[in-house]
């Protein structure tokens, strides 16, 4: 136990906790809207596309985060422009994603050097998170949260009912693109700890579970943030204790283990309705 405390006193582990906290909060909030807008596949594809950018940047001798940011934001704008036809959009995203993964593979095979930076982009690491990374995560998180707060009502409205929202004067398409850029930024800061392959866990897991437990949008978001924090803190702690297993495994594992009983067990109360609403009474009288 005392050795655990001495482990936690290491600056890089404290940095992982601080950055992880920012990431968990932002990922849960953007993840809620991602689910609402039926963009979960985009949430899966964006980090993979970002991986290609990161690999390309490594090949060119640039910071992989720059390449990741360029590719995810570019793809986010592209997906936002694709419009609302779900089936066509997901097809286009799928083809774009596999192409990006192929590019990433090409960049990796062309790169002769030590590819550890690329692997850490793929799987994440709690090692080597600097104080600067923490500050960067904090700043970007504040920016994302402030933007979501500003866009909150029109974003919620257009997520549920884009047609009426457009008729009421909400700039629906612009909002769709702005939101996906915020998702791209979220992914960019989250990748350093959870990695491109498992960012999806933090984006979708907490919001999916919270959406089955709470009724009001604000409550769902709050619950998603709490779950995200729980997964991230516990995940980092377990990764520190285990020493070799990456944190992304533990976060994904916890997310799965909590979602499972919520999906199939409790949450059944949601399917009940009051015994006699006036309308159902009328209907049965007819």
């Amino acid at each position: 136990m005392s050795s655990l405390f001495s482990l936690l006193s290491y600056p890089f582990i404290q940095n992982a906790f601080l950055a992880g906290t920012c990431i968990a909060i932002v990922a849960a909030v953007t993840g809620y809207f991602l689910l609402l807008r039926g963009l979960t596949f985009a949430g899966h594809a964006l980090p993979n596309i970002g991986f290609a950018g990161a690999a390309g940047a490594v090949l060119l001798g640039l910071d992989p985060l720059l390449g990741l940011l360029a590719f995810t934001i570019g793809a986010a704008i592209g997906i936002g422009l694709l419009g609302r036809n779900l089936r066509e959009r997901d097809l286009a995203i799928g083809i774009l994603m596999t192409f990006a993964l192929a590019l990433g593979l090409l960049f990796l095979s062309l790169y002769n050097g030590y590819a550890e930076r690329v692997y850490s982009i793929l799987f994440g690491t709690i090692l080597g998170i600097s104080r600067l990374d923490v500050l960067l995560s904090f700043g970007v998180s504040l920016l994302i949260l402030a933007s979501i707060l500003l866009l909150f009502r029109p974003l919620l409205f257009s997520s549920y009912d884009p047609e009426v929202a457009a008729a009421r004067g909400v700039p629906v398409r612009l909002l769709a693109i702005a939101f996906l850029v915020l998702v791209a930024l979220t992914i960019a800061i989250a990748v350093q700890i959870v990695g491109a392959l498992l960012v999806f866990t933090l984006l979708v897991g907490p919001a999916a579970t919270a959406g089955r437990l709470a009724l009001r949008p604000a409550t769902v978001i709050l619950l998603a943030v709490l779950l995200g924090l729980l997964y991230t803190w516990l995940g980092i702690l377990l990764a520190v204790i285990s020493g070799t297993i990456p944190v992304s495994f533990f976060i994904a594992f916890l997310s799965f283990v909590v979602y499972l009983p919520v999906r199939f067990g409790i949450g059944g109360f949601r399917r009940q309705r009051p015994a006699s609403s006036p309308i159902s009474r009328q209907a049965s009288a007819n």
Binding site: L149, L150, R153, P154, R212, R216
Partner: peptide
């Protein structure tokens, strides 16, 4: 996705869903 939306939330969009900010 309408599971986590109450009737009053849906109706409320008609009042201020187009306004900026969280309200």
């Amino acid at each position: 996705g309408a599971l986590s939306l109450r009737a009053r939330d849906l109706v409320g969009f008609g009042l201020d869903g187009h306004r900026w900010g969280p309200g």
